[in-house]
Write a protein that binds this DNA or RNA. Structure first.
Lengths: 116, 116
DNA sequence: TGTAGTGTGTAGTATACAGTACACACTCGA
DNA sequence: TCGAGTGTGTACTGTATACTACACACTACA
């Protein structure tokens, strides 16, 4: 699924029971030109900036990290986490690349439960 | 420590026992113009592309992920790992943001030992 | 003393990023 | 039927990215 196509799909779905989800009105609330959003949704222009994607996520009630991923981006705050301890997190991520979801989740849970 | 300053430091250190680590020769081997490397080392221009940073890392025998971090970047391959399962890894990284190194290391070890 | 090698100053370039601005044709309810 | 609202085509803009090209002054040593 492409970024633009997904945005269009979600927007039109929400529009069915809320008329304010027209392309023009969403663009207005997000703070971009309608023509630009139109091009984004049809994939005629690459996905917008992180800032704009975040606003779209809020507006459409979608997960920002997922939208960013579809746009080929990684959230700036996550990048900063990695950059603070690059070796540590680079190794960890490469270890976890192939690990199944449940293994990663367990890891997260263990850490959260704070048995440091 | 800035990216450029660090590169200069490492290069000059290596140069002490290997004359081929002059700015010009390193630039030549890395495939960029000497004037450009000079500006990078003095911070007169922002750090170069990931590709060029990787070559510098190889040439200077430094860790690419660490150099990239100093340059304010995160390796593309790591970004791709996150983008494949954005929610999963976004949550994990935010959980681990404050976790001490040893806790993260233990997690990595457990995963590596494959008790999925 | 000249020439090979050193670092640096200045100017310029191609490409991508992240949009704006405005006009156009269409539709649909009052 | 007309006017408000809809999506889209075209043209343009400012800024950042990632460099190249060339000339210059200095040093070192043969």
């Amino acid at each position: 699924m492409t970024f633009g196509g997904y945005i269009r799909e979600v927007r039109e779905r929400r529009r069915r029971d809320d008329r304010t989800f027209s392309l023009r009105q969403v663009a207005g609330r997000v703070g971009i030109e309608p023509a630009y959003l139109s091009k984004i949704e049809r994939g005629q222009t690459p996905p917008p900036s992180e800032r704009t994607i975040r606003r779209l996520a809020t507006e459409l009630d979608e997960d920002a990290d997922v939208l960013l991923a579809m746009a080929g981006k990684v959230s700036q705050d996550l990048q900063e986490i990695v950059m603070l301890r690059p070796k540590l997190f680079a190794d960890l991520l490469r270890q976890l690349r192939e690990a199944p979801d449940h293994a990663v989740l367990r890891v997260a849970r263990e850490i959260r439960d704070g048995d440091w």
